[in-house]
Each structure stands twice: as structure tokens, then as C-alpha cells.
Amino acid sequence: MSRSLCFLFLASKILANPDLNGRIIGGTPAHVYKLPYQVSLQNEEGHMCGGSIIHKSYILTAAHCLIGEKKLSIRAGSDFHDKGGTVRQVCAVTIHNKYNDDKEDYDYDIAILKLCQDLPLGDKILPVALPTFNEIIKDGTPVLTSGWGYTEKNVLSPQLLQVALVTVNQTTCRNNYKGVGVITGRMFCAGCKNKLCDSCQGDSGGPLFANRKLMGVVSWGYGCAMKDFPGVYTKVAKFRKWIRKEIKI
């Protein structure tokens, strides 16, 4: 199976069995002037995860991306994770207090990054709108996720990619994941009906956009675009009050 255009949503660690790697397959090249909220989250070795601009000083991402990481930065306003745009250092990290990395269940998989210097807002760098608290996303809703995740083993996509998905019924997703992982009320699933598409390692923490809002954060999943195993996303609407509390603006 080709993994060319496969892009992100796995944890920053590799789990032995099962392989809970979020993958996106079936994507197409994307441009930040259409996705101006997208950022690349980087450590000293380069791109590691995605993130979304929610304020000129703050980035929303996945908690699992940040465990054990230091000297973080983000790149915004570029189609490429390794050049162009604007780079900002991260001064503070806030991981949700109920996230437990030892449990490896990805519940409460959400975090906020405080930048050391504000981003210069413009056509290619803009905050994304957030859902209201507990806002519902209906089954079958068209959604879009994006990132620079792996296109093949250990190879990141140099170009930002995107893929169109639809949300999956929560009960159906829970039943499909029995014995693999738990789909909690703070998660939802999205995938493709008639073709292979999904998010991949390196896309974790990135955006899932729907109804003109940031509805999800790329979190986890089983395998790569596997039938009956859609990608699993942190439900941003469940954390709207927490975000408001943690952002000091």
C-alpha cells in the first residue's frame, strides 16, 4: 500500500502492540493562505507535530506531543515545515491536568503553548475560530485535517498536505475500537467511506476543521487508513472552558 500523501496524527512515541499511529492517506497539497491557522511544532531536530493558532500568542496542540520535550518552537505562515514563514520560541507549556501519559489512552489529549513573542497576524497567519462549549458535530459532517506527517516510513512530507474526511458515528467508532482503545466522550472519529484516507505520524496535534471552526485536534488511531478504524480526534468543544481559563489575554 502506498503511503505517499499519508499525513499525521500519531503519538510522539511508537507503541508496540497495537500500533496506535495516526495516519493520513489520500491527501493533496495544501497552502497556508487557505489554512492560516496551521503551524509546525518543532523540537531541536525539526518538525515533530502540528498545532493551531488560537491567538497571536497561543497555539493549541496535543498533550502527547509534549511529553519529555524541551526547547520547542513553532513555524507559522509557510507551506513547508523547514523553511519560510515565521518562527517563534515556546515560553510555556500547559498540558491538561487530567492527561495521563502512563495510561496510553490519549484521554484529555490537549495542550496550550505560550509563545515568547506574538505572531505577526496577516493573510498567512491567523487565529482559528473555536466552537462553543459542548457544541455538537453531527455524524457525517465534512471535515478537513492537515499536516506534514509521514509520507513513507520515517519521511515527513516537505509540503503541507490536507485531506477531506467525514465524522463517524460515536457508537460505531467505539464498537470498532473495542479491544484496541477506548473512545471517550472527549473524543470523536473521522474517516472516509469509500477510499483510504486518514492522518499519520507527524500530524499529531494538528487541526481538524469543520463548520468554519477548530472542532478537533489530531490525537490517535489504529494503523494507517485501515478499514473500520477511523482517526480519533480530541473534541475541542469539550475543552472550551479550560482553554478560556488557561489563556491569559
Results as ranks from 00 to 15, higher is better:
I125A: 06
G191N: 00
S40I: 09
Q89C: 00
E135Q: 14
K245P: 00
N97E: 15
D203R: 04
W148Y: 07
T132W: 11
E152F: 09
L66E: 12
I25K: 13
S57F: 14
P230K: 07
A210M: 00
N43G: 15
T94L: 13
N21R: 15
P158R: 02
L126T: 10
C116F: 06
I54L: 01
D102E: 12
C200R: 04
Y33F: 14
T167L: 04
N175T: 08
G27N: 04
C189S: 02
P207K: 01
C189G: 05
T151V: 13
Y222M: 05
I54N: 03
L10C: 15
K71P: 11
I25F: 14
D102M: 08
D139A: 01
G26I: 06
S4L: 15
Q89Y: 11
S57D: 15
D123Q: 14
C173Y: 01
V166K: 06
R174Q: 10
I67G: 05
L35R: 14
N100W: 09
T167K: 04
L156A: 10
Q89I: 07
R75A: 08
D105M: 12
I25A: 15
I249M: 08
E44D: 14
T172S: 03
E69P: 09
L196G: 10
L208K: 05
S199G: 11
W220V: 06
L126S: 13
C49Q: 01
H47G: 08
G85A: 07
D102V: 11
F80H: 13
G27I: 04
K71C: 13
D198H: 08
D109Q: 00
M1L: 12
K245I: 06
Y58T: 03
H64C: 06
P158F: 05
I59D: 04
A30I: 03
D228A: 11
K238Q: 12
V155Y: 06
N194P: 09
Y222V: 08
P158H: 03
Q159G: 00
Y33M: 13
N43Q: 12
T151E: 09
D79N: 13
K227R: 11
H55S: 10
A62K: 00
L60V: 07
T28W: 10
L113P: 09
N17D: 14
V217P: 05
H31I: 07
S73P: 10
E152G: 11
K98E: 13
C6E: 07
K56E: 14
N100T: 12
C192I: 06
S219P: 08
K193R: 12
K114G: 05
P36R: 02
C192Y: 00
H64M: 07
R88T: 01
T172G: 04
L208N: 03
I54Q: 01
T132I: 11
T184Q: 06
K248F: 06
L5F: 14
S204M: 07
G26P: 08
L196Q: 12
C6S: 04
K195G: 08
P120A: 14
L72M: 03
R240G: 00
L20W: 05
W242E: 04
K138L: 09
A210I: 00
A129K: 09
N97S: 15
K124H: 13
Q162G: 02
K238I: 07
C173Q: 03
T61Y: 03
R244A: 14
S78R: 07
K235A: 10
V90L: 02
L66K: 12
A30L: 02
M215V: 08
L113S: 04
D107G: 06
R212M: 02
I25N: 13
N100L: 13
L214D: 03
L160T: 05
C49E: 02
